[in-house]
Computed example of a mutant assay.
Amino acid sequence: MCRRVVLTLSVLLVVAGLAVPQASTARADSALVAARSAVFGADNVDQTTGAVRDDRVLFSWFGVSSFAVAMAGKVFLTDAWVPNAYRGHVPTTRAQIAAIKPSHILIGHGHFDHAADAVDIARASGARLVGSASHCAFFHRSAPRVACDVVAAAGARPGSTRPYRGIPGIAVTAMSNIHSTLKAPEGEHPPLLPIPPSDRLVTNPPHADELGRLAGHLDDPEGGAVLYAFEVGGRRIVWNDSVGPVSQVPGGRAILATLRDLGPVDLHVGSIQGFNEITNGLGDPLRYIDALRPKVFVPNHHDDWFPVIATPAVNRERAFFDALATIDARPEVRYLRDPQDYLRPDRVTLELR
């Protein structure tokens, strides 16, 4: 009798013990489903498990060059900063981006408008950071326990490449890129002078809390620049957050040669803003597009991401299409506009073969 009671109690305790992790898992799945549905769209997310559909590529923009990406069901980020100096300008937060549980955060370069939230999101989500040796060294100084994989060695030559095998099922190639730089006028493209800032300075003034948080990141080092190419499901995709003056610097020809080798691509998600536009217009991004020969081009780094130094995407739209008309092989363009195209993965969707 005593033994039966003990066995019965033991079984009840085991069952009770098993029930707790199941409830915890259910709550975790619910949070994952909610976060991923908000970022990738409910139609693209399994409402029980939170898995993102594996038959397509999705890029969901959350400002500047930062995208939540799902490729063949794998979820990761390219860059990591939610630019909400204007309160609520981007309809998401660092916490929500972390809650989608990205496996990796691929860093193009280390300036605050690309990586200010990288460590916080990595800590909260468990994601691995990926970038140059300089990026990883910088991140480790502030967060020693955050994992960071080096894909561009210190002193890597512009245009040199390295494979990255950290994301199962996706072939990733990292190319050592160069940051935008102001150069003397060549006369090939008209200057794109700074455009007056948006009226958000008046209608939605920057809030002090966010500006104060960013103050500690304004001097974050570039740490080199990296361009990422992906092959998955019969598709070739390139993302970059900086366009260097490849026609005007040593190493520029090597970059163009590598870009031609990487192309033609199905999708190119590329920066169209840089310091050199003040003297040479949009010539730099056009050279990247021309070398990669994409079927579809999606611009980034062209939104109203910071007071005074940025402007809404619509204010440079005409200049971009006028410049694009000067190259022979023009891609289909899915021009993203802020804020209406933030968290709109339907705007950048590619079916896998």
Rank of each mutant, 00 (worst) to 15 (best):
D261I: 06
V232Q: 00
Q248Y: 10
T258L: 04
W239P: 00
S242A: 15
L262D: 07
P264Q: 11
L262N: 03
L262M: 15
G251W: 13
E231C: 04
G251F: 07
A229R: 03
Y228Q: 00
A254P: 03
G251E: 05
R236D: 06
Q248D: 14
L256T: 06
S247Q: 09
P250V: 13
A257H: 12
V249M: 05
V246P: 01
P245V: 07
A254K: 07
D261N: 13
A257I: 09
V249E: 01
G263I: 08
S242T: 15
P245R: 01
N240P: 01
G252R: 02
I237L: 14
L256I: 10
G252P: 05
G234L: 11
V238I: 13
I255F: 14
N240H: 15
R236N: 06
L262A: 10
A257P: 06
G233N: 00
F230S: 02
V243M: 03
A229E: 09
P264Y: 12
L262T: 08
Y228E: 06
W239G: 00
V243L: 04
V246E: 04
Q248K: 12
R253Y: 09
D266A: 11
R235Y: 10
G252Q: 07
L256W: 05
A229L: 07
L262H: 11
V232I: 14
W239L: 14
R253A: 15
S242I: 08
G233I: 07
V249N: 00
V238F: 04
Y228N: 01
G252V: 09
A257D: 15
A254Y: 09
W239S: 03
V232F: 04
V246Q: 01
V243C: 11
R253P: 10
G233L: 08
I237H: 02
L267V: 10
I237R: 01
P250S: 14
R260Y: 08
W239N: 00
P250T: 13
A254D: 15
L256F: 06
G233P: 00
V246H: 02
L262E: 13
V238Y: 03
G252I: 08
V232D: 00
Y228S: 00
P245Y: 12
V238P: 01
A254E: 15
L256Q: 05
V265C: 10
G251N: 01
A254S: 15
E231M: 05
D266R: 06
G244P: 03
E231S: 13
L262F: 10
D241P: 07
R253W: 09
V246T: 15
A257Y: 10
V232G: 02
G252S: 08
L256A: 05
L256R: 02
L259M: 14
N240G: 05
V265I: 11
T258G: 03
G263F: 10
L259P: 00
V246L: 15
G234H: 11
Q248F: 11
G263D: 03
G233E: 05
I255V: 15
A229T: 07
G233M: 05
V243I: 07
G244I: 08
